[in-house]
Design a protein around this nucleic acid. Structure first.
Lengths: 239, 239
DNA sequence: GCTAGTTTCAAACGGGTGTTTGAATAAATT
DNA sequence: AATTTATTCAAACACCCGTTTGAAACTAGC
């Protein structure tokens, strides 16, 4: 085990620091993929950081692409399950009354916050990784994500459609798309972190602060009156 | 010139199809970087598509990173100049009255639309490239972009602050951040293209359609009332 | 027509990539 | 205790990467 001589020291905060090889690889991959992106992160970098043999990555996950998907699935799948469960809870609690946009947005954001807080280190990394994956051009990533999101998005689109009955379904789809965009962009970006650091240096790593500002912004956007054809000139009257 | 035997056929729409080596490289790089991202696009791929020698890329641009920056600068710099000029025009036309959010957003979006329409092919590619670059983890890209955007963002933050005098400056900064996020995410994503294709198959490649829906959404978000501390529970009362 | 400067070219350089292999070791089962 | 199964390991494989080189082909300027 020559490589392990230059092994990066593992975190010592908790009692159980020695996990199995598979988890070690997943943890290291999560952090490195988040930091450098998929293409720029090599398996050698990952396995060295995880202090395991290079071949272990292919042995346990098959390929680099499958490893990336495993990293995403591990947390994304439970999070989206939570989102759908929470929405169901709210809907049954409300009986046959439509939910407000605020409540629906809460159902989207709370599981993300839970993730960011539960696994103190990994969770926050994961949200940034997720936001970046959503903007990655690699086809296998885009296809994987949209298949993972499909069911949840459909449920939320239906909920927003009920909350905004005056809007055409097409407009609801667009606005949900904008909501997802602002959310993933905000979670992925380093700019948001810089802004928190600038205004509230003591509250870095506080995603709650971030989402509490984003949520009202998005709710107002969702409730915007439908632009009339006659309003078009007011936006882009010239080129 | 052995490589040029397998040269990809150049576009034949216009009279002038033979441009100089430098432009050929820039055009090919723009398209390929947009399609695969920075890391996944090799210089060999670019120079082959441009039907030039591999060494020409390093000869004319120095390095792959500098080539990428040149691709961005070529269109981003004029676009941001346009944005600032347009904002100035609106402001002088309005005298000492504050501009509305709608007008400010127009000043942001119109130069992007102009870009998408002017260079029929390249312009549209560039907007997607730009949106993706903004989410790229590579430090040199992030630093380059934030330096390119710094002046323009400052101008728009000031404009929005005047339009929304009741909001604290910090809140204005956040909301401008959300606006940039939704904009770049929407321009970068393939999902938006799919949605246009789904609802208006005849209007694919129509960015105007896209931005006309995004703009009212963002304007409403910008004008959202400031969330009070007492409202906090309504968003994230549980975890 | 010759020279000086610019641009193109094929080839190579050193190094990093994902993946595979087959032996060695550890764990589990009989 | 013996045997099967699962895992780890060092080494190699075949390939692609960004960059450099030095000669060849051009293009002005005089």
């Amino acid at each position: 085990m020559a490589i392990s001589a230059i092994q990066k020291p593992v975190r010592l905060n908790e009692i159980a620091i020695e996990t199995d090889t598979k988890s070690r690889i997943l943890d290291a991959a999560e952090e490195l993929f988040m930091e450098h992106g998929f293409e720029a992160t090599s398996l050698r970098l990952i396995t060295t950081a995880a202090a395991v043999n290079l071949a272990a990555a292919n042995y346990h996950f098959g390929s680099k692409e499958e490893l990336f998907q495993a990293v995403l699935t591990r947390r994304l799948d439970p999070m989206n399950q939570d989102r759908m469960q929470l929405l169901t809870n709210y809907e049954t609690a409300a009986g046959n009354k439509a939910l407000t946009c605020e409540v629906i947005i809460s159902a989207m954001f709370i599981p993300a916050l839970k993730l960011a807080r539960d696994h103190e280190q990994g969770g926050k990394n994961f949200l940034r990784l997720l936001g970046r994956a959503y903007a990655d051009p690699a086809p296998f990533i885009r296809e994987f994500l949209s298949s993972q999101y499909a069911e949840m998005i459909a449920r939320y689109r239906a909920a927003f459609a009920r909350a905004l009955p005056h809007l055409p379904r097409e407009e609801v789809s667009w606005r949900l798309h904008f909501v997802m965009g602002a959310l993933s962009y905000t979670l992925a970006g380093t700019d948001a972190l810089k802004m928190i650091a600038q205004f509230h240096p003591e509250e870095v790593n506080n995603d709650e602060l971030l989402l509490k500002r984003l949520a009202p912004f998005l709710a107002a956007g969702l409730r915007a009156p439908l632009a009339q054809a006659s309003d078009a000139h007011q936006w882009f009257q010239e080129t």
